[in-house]
Design a protein around this nucleic acid. Structure first.
Lengths: 194, 194
DNA sequence: ACCCTGATTGGATGAATGTCAAATTATGTT
DNA sequence: AACATAATTTGACATTCATCCAATCAGGGT
């Protein structure tokens, strides 16, 4: 599947919801649930012009909710039951691959990193928590998970990024990216991370 | 509940589907499923103007899909999980009372009866199967379910409706509204009816 | 008090949608 | 063949919707 197909799939899911997003069409689905119906019947019951009903019916069939059987010159529409048993979540949730194809999930992260890190050095410590989080997550990659560091080793590494190593150390602790006990620092392993 | 409230309820259901009926909003729901998100982040990831994102977010929250938490000057939107576990059917299906309030379910039947039955007599036997069905269902009410009738009794009753009693008799049999065996006619009871 | 940042609101504009009337197509009947 | 019935299509119109820009609002920091 290429990107275009993935987007088409996304459109198809939206189309199903769009088809259900109109009160008249919800009524039609309910009436078709009781028994199959033909156009004129629905037009009479709902007090709408046959052309309007025809329009709604084609949206519902295109979305895969109704099936059409021709009978003399009646077009009888029946409800396709199995679609309705799916949960919203089953229809909405995109597989990882598809999500990535439609979206640059780390565009925001990259934008923040790009604006604060120039040639490997921190231009400024972000004042906003969410941005500080992103920058510190990047910095903490310099530490090996599980390994213990003395404060002066920590400082040496942090100095590569910014002079104010005390602020960085404090930030790392506050954001739970590093732990400290009796002057020893370590980066939690992924498993303990949450 | 009065009629207006019922219609409002119907609109609310449609609103939920409408909110999901757009590809960008499906992406937002997917992203919010991974973790809560704030507006600027979504605008960057989806490459859209913040105003546009704000618009989509308000549709999703109005529909009850997202919840908002304010954090400094970030507005963080989280997915409300339980709605998504409902099936389409649970959301679409209207209780009988509500359906009846929005719809004249037997408008079509009444229209057909009105056009063929004048002062209790059949103006003409409908040429179309579906209309004949409706008229004969009305006529068969003159017979007591389960009771046995001789052909001449049947004729006497049918004559009240139309001269061509033979055509009516044939219609009643074809539409399975009456049964015949060895010149004896009877109307099936409800239980045997299907 | 004054800036900064993110979010929302109020137009503005083009696109999509809902509705109906009139014309057309498909099927059946006389 | 001519007519009748139901469905669909087409065209017109009004409504709603998606998107962006510009202005405003709300929190926080200097």
């Amino acid at each position: 599947m290429n990107k275009t197909e993935l987007q088409a799939n996304l459109e198809a899911r939206a189309q199903l919801f769009k088809a259900l997003g109109h009160p008249v069409r919800l009524l039609i689905v309910n009436l078709a649930h009781i028994k199959p119906r033909h156009g004129e019947e629905l037009a009479t019951i709902l007090n709408l012009n046959p052309a309007t009903i025809s329009h709604h019916l084609s949206l519902l069939t295109d979305a895969g909710l109704l099936s059409l059987k021709k009978d003399q010159y009646y077009h009888t529409y029946s409800l396709i039951g199995d679609v309705l048993n799916k949960t919203l979540d089953e229809i909405i949730r995109l597989p990882q691959a598809e999500l990535m194809a439609n979206v640059e999930e780390d565009a925001y992260r990259n934008k923040v990193l790009k604006s604060f890190l120039k040639r490997g050095r921190l231009v400024q410590i972000p004042r906003q928590f969410k941005k500080e989080q992103i920058v510190l997550e990047k910095i903490v990659e310099e530490f090996e998970p599980g390994r213990e560091y003395l404060e002066r080793e920590v400082n040496r590494i942090l100095l590569e990024f910014h002079e104010d190593v005390a602020a960085l150390r404090r930030g790392l602790i506050e954001h739970h990216l590093m732990k400290r006990d009796k002057g020893i620092y370590w980066r939690p392993t992924e498993a303990q991370d949450h």
